[in-house]
Simulated assay, not measured.
Amino acid sequence: MPRLNVIVASTRPGRVGRRIGDWFTAAAVRHAGFDEVRLIDLAEVGLPFHDEPHHPAEGIYLREHTRSWSATTAAADAFVLVMPEYNYGFSAPLKNAIDYLYHEWRHKPVGFVSYGMTSGGLRAVQMVKQVVTTLNMVPVNEAVTIFLQQALDDAGELLPDPGRDEAADLMLDQIARLAAALAPLRAVAA
């Protein structure tokens, strides 16, 4: 079975992204379609602004934080990006984390749990799809979209939502199928 990394893309203090990431990680574990599910919080990873002198396609990493990020990313067979929308786009920490690497992303499916106010993060997802497809990742069609004004209680916690749970299961089904289908391409690339 494939290994899944759930990446929380917001690093802003007071963010809701970690709570959404925790919810989704629990949903992925319950789904049971993955050998391993890891929550990767970019706020904890703490990558500085891209500081490697070599192009990522060369795979020559001089900094320990890059080698660690490379190993974490290479070990996964699939990804889910838990991502906010900032000013109609995706977060700078997410773009930075993606740009650190190249081969580690190739031939792996990626799903999206987006959140925001009026668009639920959909515009940011459309923008990041251009980036991930350039890296030969395969975005899945199913997604989880969270409209924060309807999803949070007065304390800022996620309200239960059977529709959101169903959307997560559908996306996880698709990610697991694609991870298996793309495995031969990942094997050849390795």
Rank of each mutant, 00 (worst) to 15 (best):
T72H: 06
Y102H: 15
D165P: 11
L135D: 06
H103D: 15
H103A: 15
A28H: 11
I60G: 07
W69A: 04
P93E: 00
G156S: 13
D169V: 08
L47V: 10
V16E: 14
T134V: 09
D153R: 12
L42P: 01
T72M: 12
L42A: 00
K108D: 04
F49C: 08
R186M: 04
P109L: 12
V29F: 05
W105N: 04
F112M: 14
A168Y: 11
T145V: 14
I7A: 05
Q130P: 00
Y115L: 04
L152F: 09
V6R: 14
P13Q: 12
G59D: 07
R164A: 13
H50D: 09
R67Y: 00
N96F: 01
M127K: 13
G46V: 08
R67S: 03
S70T: 03
L152Y: 09
V113D: 11
S70G: 02
A9Q: 07
P162V: 11
H50S: 09
A97R: 00
Q130L: 09
P2I: 07
V80C: 02
R38T: 07
R18V: 11
E166C: 04
W105D: 07
A183T: 02
V29N: 09
A92K: 10
D77S: 03
H50L: 13
K129C: 14
V29A: 15
E52P: 05
K95L: 08
K108R: 14
Y115T: 06
G111H: 09
P56S: 14
P109T: 10
V45R: 02
G116A: 05
R15Y: 08
W69F: 04
V131C: 08
R30Q: 13
R63T: 07
G121R: 10
L81V: 00
A92Q: 10
N141V: 11
R12C: 07
G46K: 10
S70N: 03
Q126T: 07
V128R: 07
Q149I: 00
M137Q: 01
A74T: 09
L62S: 14
D35R: 13
S119W: 14
E157H: 09
V128M: 13
T134H: 13
P2E: 06
E58L: 11
T118P: 11
D99H: 03
E157G: 07
F24G: 05
M171I: 08
F147E: 10
H31V: 00
K95F: 01
V132T: 15
V131A: 08
V128F: 12
P2W: 10
R106C: 13
V125Y: 13
A168D: 15
Q149R: 07
D51R: 06
L185N: 12
A57G: 06
E142Q: 15
G21H: 03
A179K: 10
L158M: 14
A143H: 13
Y61L: 14
R12P: 06
